[in-house]
Design a protein around this nucleic acid. Structure first.
Lengths: 321, 321
DNA sequence: ATGGCGCCTGCTCATCTGAGCACGGCCACC
DNA sequence: GGTGGCCGTGCTCAGATGAGCAGGCGCCAT
């Protein structure tokens, strides 16, 4: 498509005004500006091409289909869902962003075909929001398995458990909880708890789930792992020093997706990252500026097949080679 | 047009995405979402109506046809030209705004039919920009008359004269200058200068011009009248105290368009405001936030038949009842 | 329960629009 | 100076779109 010269550009603007603002038909515009109908059509096409005419869909539940396509192609994803970030560019309006992404995740889950027989889920603020936005009856008879440990140490108890339970309940399904802390103090305790029949059973079912729904955490003090008391702020600082960009299923990884601290990782209960990498369907839900780095790592190192996120994060992923 | 309920709204969003983002045809969309082609069409129409789909023309020389229509109807203007303000909402990017408005004024002048035989013009920063943007040959044989006094007291001389001269020269026409200060110290001097044959002749031709092109000044220290030394900053403060919102042709008016200081006005040389009010065509060119008040007054009190301004100013005029 | 009312839906047809094609002018190269 | 190729333009025609209309369904009042 040839570029418009300056005169044509101005004509294109006038044409676009009459066509889109005034609602004239293409030959009316042609008659008015003494152009052929076809010339008018071509100018309109070029104006859209060059961004003189911008058509945007303004709605919290709108999606960015173009960006989604780019993500799929760039990272070989099976699917991607990108929702617009709130306009408000001043303060980090992360609550609204999270709400939109969570809604999109809920929609995506409800629209999944075939419906997974067993769905493995992690936990955290993001997934709590997703669970909350699922319509009762979003599916029927889905078994939901908690895939990483999460007996909350402080705060209101049961966030981890209730996320899984809510998702299951709203699908008239069973829930399989993983009754274990996320990270244990000593490796021996971890081995012992994994030997427990209930825990072992849950882990087995986690490994055989037909789909996973999980989120990722940034390596900072606002991480749920910190707030829950599993790791201290000092630990986080140390992990960051070693290259950690965030955690997936409680496992801290560096920019390349490698485990940062194998000893810590060995004390972490739940599905391993290879479990995700081997999955047919692994849906990562991630929102907000703080999580750009971990999102990039997760996507680039093949932890997910489906990414659900906000526009800003998506663009951040696409921007660097 | 009935309002969309929540479900339909969501469908409308999906429809709009497929139609505008993906470029599908309406029945393709219908097939995909299991809707009839007609339903799809109606949803698209409603989405545009309700602002879910926003089509905007992004170009410095684009115009706001909707706002223009509103201005014409609200103030009984013969015509209105509104250009978009620069996006940059942070600093008062008035230079760019002025450039756009001046360009629009030049375009409007060049497109005027019938071409005025005699064009009365005022002077100021704004009109200097307009003159500068007129293409040589924008018209043929237009006589340009300077309608208010403007022998500049300080700064580079002749801004007033050169504006008129440039406009005339680029139309291969004559220029009639008004060789007089804008405001005189003493009423007697003013009478004497008006009695001068050249001045009297210029004023007579100003009164009989077939169209006027003029601007307005805010009542503040950045006014050209202050910078030229005709009024002091103290004078301005006093005028503001008496209710002045700005000046038109060097004549300070209050919010209702009445002369604020009759004694000062009597010492001001040039066409009177009634001369503008009686004109068939009086084009007011005004840009920038500082001039909202004087613009409102000028438009509301019938000083112009055509308004050329920026989006922000136009909206300010339309917002208050 | 039942009739009336009004809204929503899907159809017919006329109009509008975009893809493909042929012509003519312009430029560059021979 | 001639000639070939390329770009830009306007046409043909098929497919897409929107206005107007009739049937059907639900809702409300009687």
């Amino acid at each position: 498509m040839p570029v418009l010269d300056e005169d044509e550009e101005l004509t294109a603007v006038r044409v676009a005004e009459l066509y889109y603002d005034e609602g004239r038909t293409q030959d009316e515009v042609g008659a008015l500006l003494e152009l052929s109908r076809w010339k008018v059509g071509r100018l309109l096409a070029q104006a859209r091409e060059q961004g003189i005419v911008r058509i945007e869909i303004v709605h919290p539940r709108a999606r960015r289909l173009g960006v989604e396509r780019a993500l799929r192609e760039r990272f070989g994803l099976a699917d991607a869902v990108v929702v617009p970030a709130p306009d408000d560019p001043t303060d980090s309006d992360d609550a609204e962003t999270l709400a939109r992404v969570a809604q999109a995740a809920a929609d995506h889950l409800a629209a999944m075909r075939p419906v997974p027989r067993t769905l493995g889920v992690s936990w955290g603020r993001t997934l709590a929001e997703v669970a909350d936005r699922l319509q009762p009856g979003w599916a029927h008879g889905v078994t939901v398995v908690q895939i990483n440990g999460g007996v909350t140490l402080n705060r209101r108890p049961g966030t981890a458990a209730s996320t899984a339970a809510t998702i299951a309940q709203r699908a008239d399904g069973q829930v399989v909880l993983l009754p274990s802390p996320a990270i244990l103090e000593r490796i021996q305790t971890k081995r012992a708890i994994e030997a427990d029949r209930v825990v072992a059973d849950a882990l087995a079912r986690a490994r055989s789930a037909s789909a996973y729904l999980f989120t990722a955490g940034a390596a900072d003090d606002r991480s749920v792992l910190v707030e829950s008391g599993y790791v201290s702020t000092d630990d986080v600082a140390e992990l960051v020093r070693k290259g950690a960009v965030g955690d997936v299923l409680g496992r801290f990884v560096d920019a390349d997706g490698n485990i940062v601290d194998p000893a810590l990782d060995a004390r972490t209960v739940g599905l391993g990252l290879d479990g995700l990498r081997a999955a047919d369907t692994a849906i990562l839900v991630v929102a907000g500026r703080a999580k750009h780095d971990i999102a990039r790592t997760a996507v680039a190192s093949g932890l997910c097949t489906v990414l659900i996120t906000d526009d800003t994060t998506a663009r951040a992923l696409l921007e660097d080679s």
